[in-house]
Design a protein around this nucleic acid. Sequence first.
DNA 1: GTCTATAGTCGGATAGAC
DNA 2: GTCTATCCGACTATAGAC
Lengths: 194, 194
Amino acid sequence: MARPGSSKREAIVAAAKTLLWERGYEATSPRDVMALSGAGQGSLYHHFPGKREVAATALAEMAAEEIGVIDALFTPGTPPLDRVRAYLTRERQALRGCRLARLANEAAMEEPALREPVAAYLGHIETSLRASLAEAREAGQLAPGLAPAALAAALLAIVEGGYVLARVHWDEAAMRAAIDGGVQLLAAAMRPQA
Amino acid sequence: MARPGSSKREAIVAAAKTLLWERGYEATSPRDVMALSGAGQGSLYHHFPGKREVAATALAEMAAEEIGVIDALFTPGTPPLDRVRAYLTRERQALRGCRLARLANEAAMEEPALREPVAAYLGHIETSLRASLAEAREAGQLAPGLAPAALAAALLAIVEGGYVLARVHWDEAAMRAAIDGGVQLLAAAMRPQA
DNA sequence: GTCTATAGTCGGATAGAC
DNA sequence: GTCTATCCGACTATAGAC
């Protein structure tokens, strides 16, 4: 399995990554993956035991890619508050939903192999936010009474909730409003110094 | 249609409400609805043209019910900040997901008949929050630079995002952390007076 | 209004040739 | 490794009896 020279395997995983983002897990059939990748049924079931493992592989790759993007936003050296703001205000395709967390409400999340990459991605963001907020706190930039861990969770929830609002209203502006509110709240949380 | 004495119709809608919350739209089949309601296929297709209309009816009822719950939380007379906090900290079954917004990432949200009840529900919450925050602002309780509309969107996103975090981590505590952060941020946003 | 029987399609997966 | 042929069950819906 996972041999580097295996061309159809890569095509299958690439197709699965596209379709999982576009349609989610339940709505993506092995047939869809085969059609988009150009692979036959034999290839798919040669390389993977079944649909779940294809999705697990695709999700793991997606999580690794997105974690790389996050790490680029949280460059050490940048002032901690700027890192947090950079995460909040980065460009997003709100109507497409979060590439990983869009699966949150699918029954498939009860399968550890599918939940874990998504949880790792969100966990990584939360950890990065918490570290930045803790750094700001030590520099005396955080108002007292504000816990970095709780703030990190709230800011991440604003982003993930922003995707939900945008999808439901079918309007990117709903995401922008939530992010705006987050940025304003963050500013208020630091007012003493900043 | 919708005749009051029609007993199977009510059972069908009640079953659909249960299953839509539990499994979502795509994962709920007419057969599931029939099995849970005790109705036969003839009844279902006598009262409704198909699955979509069953779901649209169920979602409309769910939205009306939940809007009633929201209105009870935003009782006029209570201090505005208390209303906002009451909404944030109300009890929730985080792992079950938001009864309406759990459908946000389904393809069915492209159908207006299904999206509209969900959008109306979230819109109603956002309006209630905004009105309370505007009231607090006029009473001089909001720090300058904070826009009620953006704050309302952010607080709603914290709740909806909290559901996402709880589902992905399969841990109610993830929702509690996000809400805690929201409450702390709200307090910071008012610090001048409160 | 409600039921059972039936239909046609797609779901996920296996068998076995090349 | 890759392909085509095939299987069985579930999905949404229609037909028509009661």
